[in-house]
Design a protein around this nucleic acid. Sequence first.
DNA 1: AAAAATGATTGCTG
DNA 2: CAGCAATCATTTTT
Length: 415
Amino acid sequence: MDERLLGPPPPGGGRGSLGLVGGEPGGPGEPPGGKQDIGDILQQIMTITDQSLDEAQAKKHALNCHRMKPALFSVLCEIKEKTGLSIRSSQEEEPVDPQLMRLDNMLLAEGVAGPEKGGGSAAAAAAAAASGGGVSPDNSIEHSDYRSKLAQIRHIYHSELEKYEQACNEFTTHVMNLLREQSRTRPVAPKEMERMVSIIHRKFSAIQMQLKQSTCEAVMILRSRFLDARRKRRNFSKQATEVLNEYFYSHLSNPYPSEEAKEELAKKCGITVSQVSNWFGNKRIRYKKNIGKFQEEANIYAVKTAVSVAQGGHSRTSSPTPPSSAGSGGSFNLSGSGDMFLGMPGLNGDSYSTSQVESLRHSMGPGSYGDSLGGGQMYSPREMRANGGWQEAVTPSSVTSPTEGPGSVHSDTSN
DNA sequence: AAAAATGATTGCTG
DNA sequence: CAGCAATCATTTTT
C-alpha cells in the first residue's frame, strides 16, 4: 500500500518523502514543514489504488536491484550528514496546551474522565446530604437521571477516546512500517522516526481535544438542564418548611438568622445554607408584603412553639430554639396576638388552643423577652439594628389584608 | 386551565 | 457582601 512512497522521487510530487528525511536543502525541518509532511502522506495514502500498487511494487524491486543503488544510498547518507544539524533545531516540547489542561481538569472534576464509579459532584452532594441526616430522601432521586445521562456521556466519551487511541496507534504503526521500509532505500535515523511519531500524536491529540471540548459542552448543557435548581425546583419537605417557619415565627421580631443559625437550619432541613438564606429572604419579603395572609400561619407556629415550651419538653434537638414570643416585636405583633383569636378558624381553632396561647402570652409578659435570650443564640452584627428596623411601618391596622375577610385587626388587645 | 404558592435568580443598594 | 424587590420558572392548589 505504501510502496508508492518508496519509489524514486517524482519530479513534482515527491516532496513528502524527501521531507521525511529532512534532506530538502532549502527547507530545514521546522515544525510547519513537518506538518506538511504528514498531510502529504495522508493525501498520498488516500489516493493509492490497486493498480498503482503493482506498479510501485515493480519499481521498488527495480530500484532495489539496481546496481547503482548502493551508490545512491551513500550519496543520500552524505546529504543527510550535511543537513542533519538543521533537523535538530525543531525541538520544541509542546508547552502542554493550557486549554487542554482546562478541559481535562473539568472532565475530571465532572467525573467524566475519572474512575468509572466516581459520580463526581453529584456523588459528593448525595454524600453530603446523606451525612446531614435523613431529612431529604428525595434529592438522590433527583440526581439519578442526571447521573445516568452523565454516565451515558462518559461512555460515549470513553469509547470515542479509545477509538481515537486505536486509530492513532494504527496509523503510527503504519508510518513506522513505512519508514522502516524506506530505511532500506535511504537513511532514516531513529530520531526522525520519533519525530514522526510525535507529529502524529500531536495531530491526534488535537482531534482528542475536540472530543473533549464537545464532551465538556455536553456536560455543561446537561448540568444546566438538570442541576439548575430553578428549572427543576422542588418544594422543600414538609418538615423542612416546618423547621424554617418555626424559626421565622419565633424570631419574628428579628428574622435574620446568623450564619451559624443558618447552618444549623440547613442541616436540620437537609438543604443548603444559601437555600436557607433564600427562604428567609423570600419569607421576610412576602410576610411583610401581606401580613394578613400569614397571620394564620404565624399563629399556628406561635402556638406550636408555645405549646412545646409549655410542656417543658425540648422537642427541638438542643438549645438553639429558645422560648420566645411571637409577639415580642413591634406594635404589629401585639395586634397579631389579638388577631390570633380571629385568625384561627380553619385549623385547630378550638378554644382549647387559644386559651393555652392566651395564658402563655400572659405568662410571657410584655416586652421583656427578646428572642433568643435563653439559648446560645448569636447575634450577627447587623441584627442589632434590626429589631425596630425590619418592616418598620407595617402596622397591621393599616394593612388590613384585602383577602382577609374579618375586619380582624383591632389592636386594642387589652380587653 | 387558571390561580396561588414557592424556590431561585437578578439588579440594585448601602 | 447581605438584604431587598422584582421577576422567573416551576409546583401545587383550586
